[in-house]
């Protein structure tokens, strides 16, 4: 038994290592690239031994990109701020709208409620390109194209269904009796929502908010079409590194590192909420 167990352990370790390498290597490679110049990146054979340089980060932060063809202005820091602003605001608005709606869908079955909820979810099925063209036209008529307001509005297509459907499930998991008990004790439905439903669904709301944030952050196509340079997030801004004089791999790598960092930090921070959220069932009884 001892030998099989050791063998099992070894095999498991190997399998895990392979999986981790498969998923983590590209990220690790990007991290290495971000400290290299274009010359060392493109060297054949590639090497992990090089003299690290911070020039890529410096270029991003100062906004001056020096290439063989001359100096280019890049707005990466502005893109990063745009990303943060757009994602945070979109998720905040989605939470304000989506959480009460999720509660309503979970607790009050009215005629057509399932249909409305499903229609909202169906926004997630449609490829964004399908709605992009009419949306662009509407936005031009309405004067919403190339505004933060318009972008945040479109981002609701991404965030709202996600939050609505995830949080609805968490509300449904709360025993109705617990809420009844609070109402019967003399509290209004709103107090019950605030003091019972919200805290109990808290981990779920945090998880849904985090997911919505990641989806909003990673969005590319809406921002590409509907926003001009000064309102674009990092996902679109990274295109600026494809210059006439070549692709600036080093800067792209460091831009990726910088733009991944906020979501990664958030995910790590919220990890315990995610775990708590997933084990909400333990609350009963």
């Amino acid at each position: 038994m001892e030998t099989t167990s050791t063998l099992e352990k070894t095999l498991r370790l190997i399998a895990l290592t392979l999986v981790v390498i498969f998923f983590m290597f590209p990220i690790f490679w990007i991290l290495l690239m971000s400290f290299q110049t274009n010359e060392t990146i493109l060297a054949i054979p590639p090497s992990v031994i090089f003299t690290p340089t911070l020039s890529n980060y410096a270029a991003l932060i100062t906004g001056k990109l020096t290439t063989a063809a001359g100096t280019l202005d890049i707005a990466f820091m502005r893109n990063l701020m745009n990303s943060i602003f757009l994602s945070v605001t979109s998720v905040a608005i989605s939470l304000v709208l989506g959480v009460p709606a999720a509660y309503a869908f979970a607790r009050h079955k009215f005629k057509g409620s399932e249909d409305i909820a499903f229609t909202l979810l169906s926004f997630r099925f449609a490829p964004p390109l399908l709605v992009l063209l009419p949306l662009t036209q509407y936005f031009q008529w309405l004067g919403l194209s190339d505004t933060y307001f318009g972008l945040i509005w479109v981002y609701q297509l991404i965030c709202l269904p996600l939050i609505l459907w995830i949080v609805r499930g968490y509300f449904e998991d709360i025993s109705a009796d617990v809420e009844y008990a609070y109402r019967i004790a003399g509290h209004s439905w709103f107090a019950t929502f605030r003091k019972i439903a919200l805290p109990l669904a808290g981990p779920g709301i945090a998880a849904a908010g985090l997911l919505a944030f990641i989806f909003a952050w990673n969005n590319f196509v809406f921002a590409l079409v509907l926003a001009s340079a000064d309102k674009q997030p990092v996902t679109v801004g990274a295109l600026a590194f494809v210059t006439s004089s070549g692709i600036q791999y080093g800067q792209i790598a460091s831009a990726i590192v910088l733009s991944v960092t906020p979501t990664l930090a958030l995910a790590l921070y919220a990890q315990r909420y995610l775990v708590e959220g997933l084990s909400l069932g333990a609350v009963k009884g």
């Binding site: 617990v178 008990a181 019967i184 004790a185 009963k284």
Partner: peptide
């Protein structure tokens, strides 16, 4: 409404507020 009926109720599954 339920909150104004002046009733005390105990539930079979206790329905305590877990938090």
């Amino acid at each position: 409404d339920a909150e104004h009926r002046g009733i005390g109720m105990a539930f079979q599954n206790f329905a305590l507020f877990p938090h």
